[in-house]
Amino acid sequence: MQVASRQKGRGATKNPESRFSALQTATFDDGWASELEELPALRTTVEAERGRSIISRNRSPDIPFEQSINPYRGCEHGCVYCFARPSHSYLDLSPGLDFETRLFQKENAVELLEEELRQPGYRCRPIVLGINTDAYQPVEREFRLTRRLLELLAEYRHPVSLLTKGVTILRDLDILADLARDNLVSVSVSITTLDNDLKRTLEPRTASPAARLRILSELRGIGIRPGVMVAPVIPAINDHEIEAILRASAEAGATRAGYVVLRLPHELKDLFRDWLATHYPDRAEHVMSLVRQLYGGRDYDPSWGRRQTGSGHLAQLIAGRFRVARKRHGLDRDDTPPLDTGKFTRPARTGDQGSLF
């Protein structure tokens, strides 16, 4: 279903059908708009779902992890650029406003994880929490799925990595500190902009830039050497902030840095175009022209090795600026060792073989 007017506090400006939908609709002015009251604010709904497995395995050579867990489907943060939006189409829901208002929580996630960890053939490798949708989005305050998963991983002394822009992570500093003592946790904070006005439209329900810098400081204070991820870099929107973000992050306690350029798979390219037309009509075409320069004249290139950083002269310019700024602020000298997989253990449980002796 299309929504004609922008919803306050939401990132997407419309709610198009998924690419798999057999029903297609089109908006038109029937003359009644002036007679109707403004649409009520969209409320977030969260449905419980029960999965059959919880750990996703990655085989993509340009992604530096093998295992991940996503406690939630959809994300209330509402980042208009989120590459995960098209995944809502598999639920026959829109990657637009549905993605940020119709959420799903995996209610048996902890039980499924323990089942997998107790399999005799399970090989311990770091698990990334919330790589598709943020594990610390606002609904985590109520459901605490991420915390319960961390508690289980801590009990098993299993290494875990986190990438977030959610301030709710500060509620879990006790568990993170415990994991940090055994080199079992890595955390990076995503910082897209230092401009509060841009943040409100680009990623409306995320933590403020100042709060994200505070997360870096708090993590450093409990013994974690955090990273900063400048993502996504959007030409003519936030690319001019690369140096400022790295400087502020280093001052706040970050020890390493990475970046990803804007990715526009499937329906996301149209959602982003509509966002540009709504908020930056004066430069919308220019921005998309620069994006196409990153991807060989297309809106997006999903090829491994190019989808994260783009290619061509503009991509090289961004990479060069990032490399110089990272070196200037000491974010290229991180000597943190890899997470420790040798401490993994399976605690005794009632019913285990041998528990009767």
Rank of each mutant, 00 (worst) to 15 (best):
R181A: 14
R200W: 00
W275D: 04
L271D: 02
R225P: 02
D195P: 11
A231V: 13
L264G: 08
L213A: 09
V160W: 03
N183G: 11
R256Y: 11
H158L: 12
P232F: 04
E243T: 09
T193I: 08
A180N: 09
A231C: 12
R256H: 14
R212K: 13
D270T: 10
D195L: 10
R181K: 15
Y259M: 11
L194E: 01
V230K: 06
H266P: 00
L262T: 06
T206F: 03
R263K: 15
A250E: 06
I169C: 05
A207D: 10
I222R: 08
W275G: 04
A277H: 03
L163R: 01
A250K: 07
V233N: 11
L219S: 07
A207Q: 05
A277Q: 10
I191W: 00
V260K: 12
P281H: 13
V160N: 04
D195Y: 05
S186T: 07
R214C: 00
D195H: 09
R171I: 00
N196D: 15
R256L: 05
I224G: 00
G166Q: 02
F272P: 05
L271K: 14
A248C: 12
H240F: 10
R256C: 04
A252I: 12
L194W: 01
I237P: 01
I242S: 11
E241F: 07
Y280S: 04
I237A: 06
D195T: 09
A180R: 04
R181Q: 14
R200Y: 00
S217R: 15
R214P: 00
R212G: 04
R220V: 07
I169P: 01
L184D: 01
V233P: 10
R225W: 03
I215M: 14
L268T: 10
H240T: 04
L276I: 12
L264P: 02
D270P: 00
H266E: 14
R181H: 10
R273H: 07
K269R: 15
L184N: 05
I224Q: 03
L194A: 09
L202M: 14
R200P: 00
I237Q: 01
A210Y: 03
L271M: 13
I224M: 04
E251M: 11
D172I: 07
N196E: 15
R263L: 03
I237K: 07
R200D: 05
M229V: 15
P235V: 02
K269S: 14
G166V: 02
D174L: 00
A277N: 09
L202Q: 00
R157V: 11
A211G: 10
L219A: 08
P265A: 13
